[in-house]
């Protein structure tokens, strides 16, 4: 109860904002490395994906859904996309194998752009919720204004 509970709604929206912003960072990194044939782990760059999980404090809620137990979204981690890497014929490339084939990163630009748009829209939606919460709080506070 108290202040923590009062501000829990803004915490939910903030977790959504943080998660979507991080997702945009990962997407930007994928796009930036769409042609990187060398990575830190060796071999071409592998596309990274964000894994989200719902954050819910079961202990507080006692195993039942309760508005006070809701804690937004949690970032579970950044995982590699293990789909197959495309191979292109480019014998002049320094990373080409003996048959002249170069393994390219498995980043597909159209997919990244779609992900970027959905992340951006979800960010806006969370921001909207936060803004709306602020307005509602101001309205409640205005009830106290007339008393003095």
């Amino acid at each position: 109860m108290g202040l923590k509970r009062l501000l829990a709604t803004s915490h939910i929206s903030a977790s959504g904002l943080a998660a979507e912003r991080q997702r945009m960072e990962v997407i930007a990194n994928n796009i930036a490395n769409a042609n990187s044939t060398n990575s830190l782990s060796g071999g071409p760059y592998r596309r990274q994906v964000m894994v989200f999980s719902e954050a819910f404090d079961m202990a507080l809620a006692g195993g039942k859904y309760n508005a006070n137990g809701l804690e937004g979204v949690k970032i579970k981690g950044v995982e590699s996309d293990w789909s197959e890497m495309p191979r292109v014929y480019n014998p002049g490339h320094p990373d080409a194998d003996e048959s002249g084939m170069v393994t390219m990163p498995n980043v597909k630009l159209p997919n990244e752009m779609v992900d970027l748009i959905t992340a951006s829209r979800a960010y806006e939606a969370n921001l909207k919720a936060l803004h709306q919460f602020r307005q509602m709080t101001e309205q409640t506070l205005s009830l106290l204004r007339g008393i003095s």
């Binding site: 709604t9 977790s15 997702r23 989200f52 999980s53 937004g72 979204v73 969370n126 709306q132 509602m136």
Partner: peptide
């Protein structure tokens, strides 16, 4: 008003999890 506050919280939770599989 209390119910409205709770509903806002729940909708915020839904929006925060719009991309959670």
């Amino acid at each position: 008003m209390e119910v409205s506050d709770i509903r806002h919280r729940v909708v915020s939770q839904n929006l925060a999890n719009v991309n959670t599989p």
